[in-house]
Simulated assay, not measured.
Amino acid sequence: MTVFLIAEVKVTDDAWIPDYAAKVHDIAAKHNGRYLSRSGNIETLEGEKTDETLIALIQFPSREDALGFANDPEYAPYGKARQEGSVSHFRLIDDSDIAGAIEYLPKPA
Rank of each mutant, 00 (worst) to 15 (best):
T2V: 13
L5D: 09
L5F: 00
I6S: 04
I6Y: 02
K10E: 14
T12C: 11
D13G: 12
D13A: 13
D13Y: 12
D14V: 12
A15N: 08
A15F: 12
W16V: 09
W16R: 07
P18N: 06
P18E: 08
A22E: 10
K23L: 11
K23M: 10
H25C: 05
A28F: 00
K30Y: 02
H31L: 02
H31F: 00
G33T: 04
R34N: 14
R34V: 11
Y35I: 06
Y35Q: 10
L36N: 11
R38M: 13
G40C: 09
G40Y: 08
I42C: 03
T44S: 06
E46R: 06
E48W: 15
K49Q: 13
K49M: 08
T50F: 13
T53P: 00
T53C: 01
L54F: 10
I55D: 10
L57R: 06
I58A: 07
I58T: 04
I58S: 01
Q59D: 12
Q59A: 15
Q59L: 08
F60Q: 02
S62A: 15
S62F: 15
S62G: 09
E64V: 09
D65F: 04
D65E: 14
D65R: 04
D65Q: 04
D65H: 10
G68C: 09
A70T: 11
A70M: 12
E74F: 14
E74R: 10
E74C: 12
Y75H: 10
A76Q: 04
P77G: 08
K80P: 06
A81C: 03
R82D: 06
R82Y: 09
E84T: 02
S86T: 06
S86N: 10
V87Y: 09
V87M: 12
R91I: 10
R91M: 05
I93H: 11
I93R: 05
D94K: 03
D97R: 08
A99N: 05
G100T: 01
E103Q: 09
P106I: 00
K107C: 07
P108T: 01
P108E: 01
